[in-house]
Design a binder for these strands. Sequence first.
DNA 1: TAGTGGTCTAGACCACGTG
DNA 2: ACGTGGTCTAGACCACTAC
Lengths: 263, 263
Amino acid sequence: MEIKNKPGHLKPLAGAASLPLYRQVKRELQKIIEAGHYGSGKPLPSEAALALALQISIGTLRHAVDELVHEHVLVRRQGKGTFVAPHNNARFMFQFFHIEPRSAPEDDDTLLEQEFPEIACIGFARDKADAAEARALRIKPGEPVFRIENKLALRRRVVVHDKLTLSAAMFRNLTEKRFVERPSTVYALYQTDFGITVLRAQERARAVAAGKAVARVLSVPDAFPVIEVHRLALTFGDKPVEYRVSTINTQAHDYVSVLSKTS
Amino acid sequence: MEIKNKPGHLKPLAGAASLPLYRQVKRELQKIIEAGHYGSGKPLPSEAALALALQISIGTLRHAVDELVHEHVLVRRQGKGTFVAPHNNARFMFQFFHIEPRSAPEDDDTLLEQEFPEIACIGFARDKADAAEARALRIKPGEPVFRIENKLALRRRVVVHDKLTLSAAMFRNLTEKRFVERPSTVYALYQTDFGITVLRAQERARAVAAGKAVARVLSVPDAFPVIEVHRLALTFGDKPVEYRVSTINTQAHDYVSVLSKTS
DNA sequence: TAGTGGTCTAGACCACGTG
DNA sequence: ACGTGGTCTAGACCACTAC
């Protein structure tokens, strides 16, 4: 056949180090996703169509999609199409919820049937960002924020106290009603109502003596040792979305994390 | 050209659901790796050679290798070859060490320059497994185990107390000398001296009041709140390798974990 | 039957590391 | 100059889902 390929010729990065074509395609796809169309049940254009539109081979297009699928940004369904990954299923829920009862060492491997927590909103207010919140969310101190307080129960026992902080500029018109009536997780709410996709989160945990207010919520003695987790949730471009301080009663539950070479 | 491919024809799984060829190849590669040759600086056979030997196309071979690379089991080095992932470099170290100073919120993104802990062995003994150890390591209570105690310091301050338990059957002829003189991490030692590759670990964390002995090692008041982490390290086939209880002084350091859709 | 993603092949050329 | 992995292409066929 003797056909010359011209990799890096169709779409080189002028002057720069010329990112591989499939990386450029990946970025292109990310833009499409971030634009927000294709949110609800609608599949992306077919691989053949995308490859044609971008004037690349289907193999290269698939390489780009492969990476996004591996990052759980897209999901493929054979015979149906490729979709942006939904935030509403149980599987995703437990990407960000890592509390487990301490019992049942029957099966060692991970999540077989994790329990869904029962969430109750016990506070909702609009206020000005303090220093810590502003630094975390990368806004100016004093800018308006929403503060939401939740308690989470497993088997009727309150195990976690959550304090969420959201930038009011990012979450315009957020109301307590929407928070209380949300269908599933808050991250699904961010996506459906505000087009914000949480991609990653970093958590920093420390042991502290429970404060009076939180101790009452968790039904532990005053100054009892609890774990305090500071979480920052991020979207595309590592932009901060939510700052959250969780306090966990670890008398009967563990804060679980899986360290893997596959991380 | 009009050449018919015969996918699933060269190497179908008789009777069964016929795993894709590249998955079969992946297993083949895993066997090669587990066999233990290719441990020290020696590259695997080249992709072209492997594809030829297995009578498959190079694309399929690469697909299999891609997955193992993504799982950090193999690493590729352009111009040199493909190697089994070493356990001795800094990058890997921090796959399993997630303690960070609480300061410096300068750069939000992860590990730019994490500090290497200074490790000191403060105990080494051969004993019989108690109930908890036996259950974790999946051996019988009373079977011989090694117990090792370490303390880890960051910036000259002791931050972590570790208590490791290893099955003596799995680690024959382990000596205190080898542990003290180890070049880098213990997981590198497991690999070089015993051919055991740690692939994953699960950690369960809880807040507790520090016991007297540990409190002294960590220089915290008696009954001070600390985090206790129970780790089980696993190798191929999810076989338990090491059971470890770490106690962390979180006065100035955090126990960090990154939750990601890319998990 | 038609359209989608999933697998596999064969081969060209590029970029890196070593001699 | 040579061998290694890295990228890209073009096309065939399979498996699933819809209509």
